[in-house]
Amino acid sequence: MTDFHEPTPDERRHLRRCVDLAREALDDGDEPFGSLIVDGAGQVRFEDRNRVKHGDETRHPEFEIARWSASNLTAEERAESTVYTSCEHCPMCSAAHAWMGLGRIVYAVSSAQLTQWRESWGAAPSPVAPLPITAIAPDQVASGPVAEFAAELRDMHARSFGV
């Protein structure tokens, strides 16, 4: 279920960190994606960026958060958490998120935006259908996109595609 609202200052700060993580990934030769998880008390517990450049296409930061949460958070802590991410989860990450019972997701740009950008650059389509989070996890609460990050992320993704 979509729960869009104007982001709070804390939500903007967390999304800014995700965008910075995406830039770190890009600067390291990886795809520009970054994510973090915040517990119910508002503390960042784990963050990561994309790490697929060496051939393991499952090394998405959202998937790493799901894996990390299995060993480091109780079921209750997972449910009370919020995951922030530079781009809406792909189907693999949406499923991992739902299986782990993680809480709300807040994303800066949508998979629809990213798909539209890729098409405009003549890039090959993603090997996975660009479905919204709630198409994979219907009961998941997700918020986004947040317009203020779109241009910056578009530029990063364009750079990653050599545009």
Rank of each mutant, 00 (worst) to 15 (best):
E31N: 13
C87T: 12
F4Y: 10
V38D: 10
D139K: 03
S111K: 15
G55H: 04
V19A: 15
A135D: 14
E148A: 09
D30I: 00
S110G: 04
D30G: 03
A22S: 07
P125F: 06
P9D: 15
V19D: 00
K53T: 01
R104A: 04
Q113E: 13
P138L: 05
C18D: 03
G103A: 12
W121S: 02
G29N: 03
R104Q: 05
A151T: 14
V106H: 04
Y84S: 12
E47Y: 06
S120F: 05
F33V: 13
T58Y: 15
V106G: 06
H97E: 14
F46S: 07
V19F: 05
L15P: 08
A142K: 06
P132K: 04
V83C: 10
R59Y: 03
S69N: 11
D139A: 07
D30R: 02
W99R: 14
G103M: 10
E64Y: 02
E148D: 13
N72V: 02
A147G: 14
E64H: 05
A129C: 06
A75F: 02
P61F: 00
A151Y: 09
P7W: 05
L26V: 00
R59A: 08
R12V: 13
L73R: 07
T2A: 01
L102V: 09
V109Y: 08
A98R: 10
H14C: 08
A123D: 14
G40W: 10
R23T: 10
S143T: 11
F161M: 13
H89S: 07
H54Y: 06
P91W: 14
I133D: 04
E152M: 11
E119C: 01
S35Q: 01
V19I: 12
R51W: 06
I65C: 05
E64W: 01
L15T: 04
A112N: 04
Q116K: 06
D3Y: 09
A147N: 13
L36R: 03
S111E: 08
D155E: 14
E64I: 03
I136M: 02
E47T: 02
S69M: 12
M92P: 01
E11H: 14
E80V: 02
S110C: 03
H60W: 07
W68Q: 01
S160A: 13
V44G: 09
L131A: 14
V109I: 15
R78E: 08
G34C: 02
E47M: 09
E24R: 00
G162W: 07
K53N: 02
L102T: 12
V128S: 10
F4H: 11
A151D: 15
A151R: 13
N72L: 01
S160V: 05
V146N: 12
D56N: 15
D27R: 02
F149C: 09
H60P: 00
A158I: 05
H97F: 13
P138S: 11
Q140V: 06
I136Y: 01
P91V: 14
V52C: 12
A22C: 02
W68D: 00
D30L: 01
P130Q: 10
V38M: 07
G144M: 11
L73A: 07
S126E: 06
V19S: 00
D30Q: 07
L102G: 10
S81K: 10
P127G: 06
D3C: 07
R118G: 03
Q43P: 00
R159A: 12
F4N: 14
R49F: 01
E57A: 08
Q116W: 02
S69A: 15
